[in-house]
Amino acid sequence: MTRFNNVTGYVALATSLLITSTAADSWPKRGLAANDDVPISQFGGSWNNHDSQVNWQYNWDSTTSQKQSFAEYVPMLWGTANYHTDQWSDNAWYWINNGGTGHLLAFNEPERGDQANLSPQQAADAWNQYMEPFTGHAQLGAPSVSNDGYDWLNQFLQACSGCHIDFVPIHWYNDHTLESDFENWVNSICSLTGRQVWITEFQAFGSIDDQSNFLRSAIPFLDNNPCVYRYSYFGTADNSKVLLQDDGPSLSGLGVQYAFSPYGSGDGPN
């Protein structure tokens, strides 16, 4: 597993993975959306001689107390309230200069009133103030919309047409029977933006067996889609710990399947 310790390496890698490629390269894409009180140390290493595919993490914040040696930590500017923006610049520069960070995330579900709650123009103005200064120092992610945010994202991209946006994070939540809807959602954003896509939250609603069957199809789709650069299943957060056994740190069967299924397979480590 190739690991980069500086932003130059990350920028070089991202540049080489153009979404116009005719074939997907086998680079690990899996990550963890993990609140700091949720243990994630056992997602690294190997399981039955299969290396972990997890190589990045984030926590809906701009700093963390549980950086893992096997994962790049990606800071997020969750929203524009003062308690986010006041610490943003110092934290982002710290992780770029000292923590091996090569990517930054912006604004969590701004189309929703109970989340970042920004109009497309407000988000574009905030982007220019808080994200644009990091151009050339890290790869920059657009605001992360859920699967109700297509129109919002389209309007944001028009309002921020001069912004330096390297990739587009999205979310998806729906029933486990709608895996084809998940694929269509991802592909629609790839077509809309012409940029690499990260799926920074996604979860199929259903039993553990239902979610396992969903991942058997979703993981190969994501790994083999050259537009998709990274993804993180929603299962290491305060309100969803389905990737952990009894709240961790041990992994559940679903967690083992997610972390240790070989690249391009969702069947688990055999």
Rank of each mutant, 00 (worst) to 15 (best):
V38L: 04
P39M: 01
P39E: 04
P39K: 01
I40V: 15
I40M: 14
I40H: 06
I40F: 12
S41L: 15
S41D: 14
S41T: 14
S41Y: 13
Q42T: 12
Q42E: 11
Q42S: 14
F43P: 06
F43M: 13
F43Y: 09
G44R: 04
G44D: 04
G44L: 00
G45F: 05
G45R: 07
G45K: 09
G45T: 04
G45C: 13
G45H: 10
S46T: 03
S46I: 00
S46W: 00
W47P: 08
N48V: 09
N48F: 12
N48A: 13
N48I: 14
N49Y: 14
N49H: 08
N49W: 13
N49Q: 12
H50T: 15
H50Q: 14
H50V: 15
H50R: 15
H50K: 11
D51F: 10
S52D: 11
S52P: 11
Q53S: 15
Q53T: 11
V54P: 11
V54N: 09
N55G: 08
N55A: 13
N55P: 12
N55C: 12
W56E: 00
W56C: 03
Q57T: 12
Y58C: 05
Y58V: 00
Y58W: 04
N59H: 07
N59C: 07
W60G: 05
W60S: 05
W60L: 07
W60T: 03
D61R: 03
D61N: 10
D61T: 11
D61E: 02
D61Y: 08
S62M: 06
S62Y: 06
S62K: 02
S62C: 03
S62F: 03
S62Q: 06
S62H: 02
S62N: 01
T63V: 06
T63D: 08
T64K: 01
T64G: 02
T64W: 06
S65A: 11
Q66S: 15
K67W: 07
K67P: 08
K67C: 07
K67V: 11
Q68C: 14
Q68A: 12
Q68W: 11
S69M: 10
S69P: 10
F70Q: 05
F70P: 00
F70Y: 11
F70V: 03
F70S: 05
E72T: 10
E72R: 10
E72C: 04
Y73A: 11
V74G: 01
V74C: 06
V74N: 01
V74K: 00
P75K: 00
P75D: 04
P75V: 03
P75M: 02
P75E: 00
M76I: 00
M76C: 01
